[in-house]
Design a protein around this nucleic acid. Structure first.
Lengths: 239, 239
DNA sequence: TGGTATTTGTCCGTATGTATC
DNA sequence: GGATACATACGGACAAATACC
């Protein structure tokens, strides 16, 4: 069991939906029934359900109930969603590898400041990494980490999950990250590392990460092979 | 005043942040203070704040407070975000126009069923529309509307907001929509209607809309000029 | 058509936990 | 340790939409 009751209930219901104990278009038990099943209050159940709504597993309608709208047939992995790439890949039993192709310390100048939104003069780790899925290079990652926040980073650590290093070893909490998805023309560097399959452009995810103090300490550009890029998102109409 | 108190408070705080009554990295008043200011419970304030978190305006840290992380300098418009295209454009005082270039009734066959996820045999309106911003064609929209749900649609209505027609006139509630963003090679049709500015591909947003009964009644493909496409998204790390 | 039960949505007040300062 | 501030959880009350008889 984790710390939060509502999160455990969320995970349990999510698992049951994925295992098709509840079919597509089937109603979940009423909130009251779930509350008594999990021995908790209705509010706690409601919170779990609202998490399920956010990830597009169910939708709730007042007076009717909560309906399952998850289709197991659909997508296997969705980069950029709530879960990290590693999580979504292990969930789908894909082998996964990271190759560090560049590792350097540099200082943000005017040009880089505009690109990364990091202040001029910031000392950063400048890292380029290739993300391989099933031996195939799918993503070309370019990171800029503030060295004041992410200290003692090494190429070896960069080959592992940098986020785990940041959170577990440095105890820096990544709170918010803002993402922009755009399409860009392929550069020499992209063509060198990725097989672009006849395309002349890439899907680029620009990620700005903030810590608990509100300081932006990371800018990452994930440059995706266009034919393999999928971003999934579920939205509810707010009334 | 709307119906929900928490939503009004959300809108008010959002407005105050946009007007820079709270600066970047500044703390909001405590939840307790906001509760007494708005004459409501702390729960209601918390709900408003959680809406602000979702749109990337603030981040809250236990023991510290709620910090504003919205930068007014940033993006002007973000298609595909929480707000509709019309909303984001009027917010930025852009002129906006829709041109219906194709309007037809047809029946979903095997090929279309795979593409649209609508069942074979479904009778739909098949519509192609051009979205012009400041006289410039930016998006090429291709819609498939289930005629059992969206009845009596006309080219004239299609030139207006179809969603307003669906919700206000037909009283069909769009509850959930699932979106996928991908990159695709440009087709003849795309080149005919959009100025692709030297690119050979587009950003494509595939939208599947569900009504209150859980029936998918719409599939829309929004084909964006790649050089003008931006999708924004804010995520919080769940602990 | 109408009335009643069901079910989700909103809001409140309180208590307790946990992280920060 | 103590004060402050957000996080979680409970239980209750009423509103609003839906379903059913």
């Amino acid at each position: 069991m984790g710390k939060a009751v509502y999160h455990d209930i969320y995970l349990e219901l999510k698992k049951e939906i994925e295992e098709e104990q509840y079919a597509f278009k089937e109603m979940l038990p009423t909130e009251h029934a779930l509350a008594s099943r999990f021995h908790c209050s209705r509010n706690t159940v409601r919170r779990a359900i609202s998490e399920l709504v956010k990830v597009g597993y169910v939708q709730s309608v007042r007076g009717k109930g909560v309906m399952v709208i998850h289709q197991h047939t659909s997508i296997e992995f969705m980069f950029g969603g709530v879960e990290s790439m590693k999580e979504s890949l292990t969930r789908n039993h894909k082998t996964f590898q990271t190759k560090v192709v560049h590792f350097e310390e540099l200082t943000i100048d005017a040009t880089l400041a505009e690109k990364t939104m990091l202040p001029i003069g910031t000392e950063v780790f400048y890292i380029k990494r290739l993300r391989l899925v099933e031996e195939e290079a799918l993503i070309f990652d370019i990171n800029y980490f503030d060295r004041k926040v992410v200290r003692n980073l090494t190429p070896e650590k960069a080959a592992q999950s940098i986020y785990e290093y940041i959170e577990d070893e440095l105890h820096v909490k990544i709170v918010t990250s803002k993402r922009y998805i755009v399409v860009e023309k392929a550069l020499q560097d992209d063509k060198k590392h990725l097989d672009l399959a006849g395309y002349d452009c890439l899907a680029v995810v620009k990620n700005y990460a903030y810590d608990a103090d509100g300081t932006m300490f990371e800018y990452t550009e994930s440059r995706h092979r266009p034919d393999r890029f999928v971003f999934f998102d579920s939205a509810q109409r707010l009334k």
